[in-house]
């Protein structure tokens, strides 16, 4: 089962007839607090196709986390319609999993690694099934079996993030939402984990929406990159990444198109920053 997405054909003709895996129309979000109203998202439309890898980049504080929280159903958008595989939703759907930025805080410290990974399926599966899934996933995310009975706080940061990824996969979701998942691991670990995510994506044919502030990471991973303006967020660009798959940390980054897209993104984001500063 080799389902290597052929990016180039996808670029050529945006699939208008297939139902998007995740779709949002006219999304806006306004936070109301004691200190007044904050318009976090101005207006965003987005359609992510089945099996697509989309990154969301934008200046810091522009509303990326807010967007992801709305997409996941964790917070209610002020306006806008959400649909997963054609079905509207307003609370977290089962077919969708989230990998949080702060992995050390998103794992349960009183549960072993094994129990942590099994959390999403603990009410819907037998003990034997859970064990089976957990140990298959440990192998998939590159953790040795002996980590199963350990506590998350006995693991390094990179290993904890692997546990978080395994947990997100255990319920076999169609869509993975990842919020700057590798922002706080070192550079080498980050590259290893990027390849891990790409492997999972290709092998399991997932749809992934990946928030990052790292331009290189976005270009390396994605089929498509959505660039957000400074706060309040709206889409200012939607770029295809026509670099062939499977990607390779060295070769793909030497592709001249890598540099071009990188430069284009850089200018867009710095521009958004500048507008942001002038406005405030």
């Amino acid at each position: 089962m080799h389902s290597q997405p052929t990016t180039d054909t996808k670029v050529a003709e945006p699939t208008t007839e297939t139902v998007p895996m995740l779709r949002v129309d006219g999304l806006s979000k306004q936070y109301r607090s004691k200190h007044g109203k904050v318009q976090a998202i101005e207006q965003i439309d987005l359609a992510v196709h089945p099996g697509e890898f989309v990154s969301i980049v934008g200046p810091s504080g522009c509303g990326k986390t807010t967007l992801l929280n709305c997409l996941s159903g964790l917070i209610q958008p002020t306006t806008g319609e959400l649909a997963l595989d054609g079905r509207a939703y307003s609370s977290p759907p089962e077919e969708l999993s989230i990998v949080f930025q702060d992995y050390s805080r998103s794992l349960f410290p009183w549960m072993s690694v094994e129990q942590n990974i099994a959390v999403p399926i603990r009410d819907s599966s037998s003990k034997a099934e859970r064990r089976e899934s957990v140990y298959r996933l440990l192998a998939q995310v590159g953790l040795p079996e002996k980590t199963g009975p350990m506590y998350p706080w006995q693991l390094s940061g990179g290993m904890q993030q692997r546990v978080a990824i395994a947990r997100a996969l255990v319920s076999r979701p169609k869509v993975l939402l990842m919020d700057e998942p590798f922002a706080s691991v070192d550079a080498q670990t980050r590259n290893v984990l990027e390849d891990l995510v790409l492997n999972v994506w290709q092998e399991w044919n997932k749809t992934i929406i990946f928030v990052t502030h790292d331009i290189d990471e976005a270009v390396y991973l994605s089929d498509r990159i959505v660039v957000l303006s400074g706060s309040p967020a709206s889409t200012i660009a939607d770029l295809e990444v026509p670099i062939s798959r499977p990607r390779d940390q060295l070769l793909s980054k030497q592709d001249p198109r890598f540099g071009e897209i990188r430069a284009e993104l850089y200018e867009l984001i710095m521009g958004a920053h500048k507008v942001d500063r002038e406005a405030s």
């Binding site: 002996k146 980590t147 350990m150 390094s156 990179g158 290993m159 691991v185 070192d186 670990t189």
Partner: peptide, 9 residues
């Protein structure tokens, strides 16, 4: 990264 900080399970 591939090493556990504490070997005590």
């Amino acid at each position: 990264e591939a090493q556990a900080k504490a070997a005590r399970p």
